[in-house]
Every structure is written in C-alpha cells, then in structure tokens.
Simulated assay, not measured.
Amino acid sequence: MSIHKFNATALDALTAAGTPAYLDQEEGFVIAHPADVPKEQATAGHHVTVARGPYGRGYCATAWESHGNTDFLEVATVFEGDDLTLCVRAVAEWFTTPRPTAGAMLLAALAQWDITAYGDGLGMSYAIPLDPATPASCVHHRPHLSVGDSAPSVEHVPASHTGWVVSLHDEDGSPVGDPLFNNDRRGLVDCAADSAAAAEVIADYFSRPTR
C-alpha cells in the first residue's frame, strides 16, 4: 500500500469513528487530537500520530505532548499492530475522559473475587501479597504474585492489550518457577476476557489448601 493510500485509509477510519484527525502533508502522517481542540492547535497540546508500524508494516499510533514551539515529547505508544479497527479504537480510548486502562479492567476483575492488588508506583505492574495481612508498603518485599503486561505499562488502553502474565515471587522479589498464567502472545488479545481469565487463575491459586 502506498503511503498516500495508507494515510487516506487511516484518516477515513478515524473520521468515520468520530475522532478528529487530519493529514500533515509536510510530515506525511495522520494527526489525531481531542474533539475540543481545533485542528490549528492540535500539535500545541496532547495529540496522537498514526503512521506505518515497524518495518513499514501495520499501524503505529503514538501519543505526544508539545515541548516548546518545535519539539515534542513522546508520551506512550497507544497502539502497534495490523488491525486498523483496533488502532482506531485505541486512539479513541486514549482521548476518552477518564481514559480507560487495561490495569483498571484487571483490578475490576480481581475485585469480583475480593482480591486486592497494589501498584508498584511506576504503573508497570501489580502485586498481590500471599499473606492478606501484609502492609501495603511491604507487599513487594514479601512473597507475592505479580501481574504485568509486555506493554510494559499497565496504563495502556484496553485496545492495545497484549496479555497478562502472572508470576509468583519470593520475599526477595525473585520469580519462582514458571508463570501461573501467561497469555502474552506478542499480539493483541481481548482485555476484558484476558483480565477475567487471569483473575480466575489468581483466585484459584489462593483457594488451594497447600499453596
């Protein structure tokens, strides 16, 4: 597909989905922006570029913040993959307020089993203590289960989710054995279904009498 066709296809898909976007002729990629921001001011604040993915394959949506008149600070990879429909959904989710996250979906699934997970303060993973009496400040320094994604942040939007991995850790924070759950397929998976499946495995682990 030519770059002209690629950009036209991406632009049409975003527009059809109700996400404001336009083609930057000079840079050669599509820029999406919040609905309440005029096109003329799109790059003066938070915006997302949609361009070809690595090696010229698929779609790559990247979020940026203005960092001066001509400089931009990369915020996150919003989407990377071959599915344009999912790419458009990820961009729309990115501009939604409040922004949906895969981590929030996981926490909701765990709550269905009355399981509480604690963030690492960096937005990279969650920890679940094996002993419910463990103080929140000590969770990562006691035996626990970790839940993360190859994204690697848990703050990615659901449409760009690539699969949870649940691992057991000892008091030193070192992983023990193989993951209890590993749905990391290096590709996109349904976040709701994956979160529910991971939560069920975790609940089952805590229900074992000899764990």
Rank of each mutant, 00 (worst) to 15 (best):
Y118D: 03
G123F: 04
N183H: 13
Q112G: 15
D24I: 09
G123R: 06
R185C: 06
G18Y: 13
D184F: 08
M124Q: 08
S207H: 14
P38M: 03
T9V: 10
A61L: 12
G121Q: 11
S153R: 14
V91Q: 06
T116N: 13
A159K: 07
P158Q: 09
F79R: 00
E26F: 03
P132M: 06
A16Y: 10
V48W: 07
R99V: 03
I115Y: 06
V88T: 06
G56A: 05
Y59P: 02
D194Q: 01
T70I: 14
L106P: 07
G123K: 03
A196G: 11
P179L: 12
R99E: 04
L73A: 11
C60E: 11
R57F: 13
T49H: 01
S153Q: 13
E93Q: 15
A42M: 01
P129T: 05
S167R: 15
A51Y: 04
V88L: 05
A198M: 04
A42V: 03
T96E: 15
A8C: 02
D82Q: 11
T85I: 05
H156A: 12
T97N: 11
R52S: 08
H46R: 10
D36Q: 14
C138S: 15
P152G: 05
I3R: 14
E26Y: 01
H161F: 14
Q112R: 15
P179W: 12
V165T: 15
T85R: 09
V139R: 01
I31K: 11
K39P: 00
A199W: 03
S146A: 13
E200F: 01
L106H: 07
N183G: 05
L168F: 08
L145C: 10
Q25R: 15
M105S: 04
H144A: 11
D24W: 12
E171P: 02
H141I: 10
S137M: 07
F181G: 01
T210S: 02
T85S: 09
V75W: 00
C87F: 01
E74R: 12
V75K: 08
F95K: 01
G148I: 00
A92I: 05
V88E: 00
A21W: 10
A32D: 08
D120L: 07
D24A: 13
H4R: 14
P135A: 02
E26K: 08
R142H: 03
Y22A: 03
G163S: 03
G58T: 00
L130Q: 11
V154T: 02
T97H: 11
G173K: 13
W64S: 04
P132A: 06
F95P: 02
D71L: 02
F181C: 01
H161C: 08
H161E: 10
A198Y: 05
A133P: 03
P158L: 10
D71R: 07
P132C: 07
E26D: 09
T77G: 10
A108Y: 01
A193I: 08
G187N: 04
V37H: 02
W164F: 14
L86C: 01
G81I: 07
L188Y: 05
H141K: 14
A111Y: 06
A35E: 14
A90H: 04
D172N: 06
E155K: 07
V30C: 10
S195I: 02
P129W: 07
Y205R: 06
V157L: 11
E40T: 08
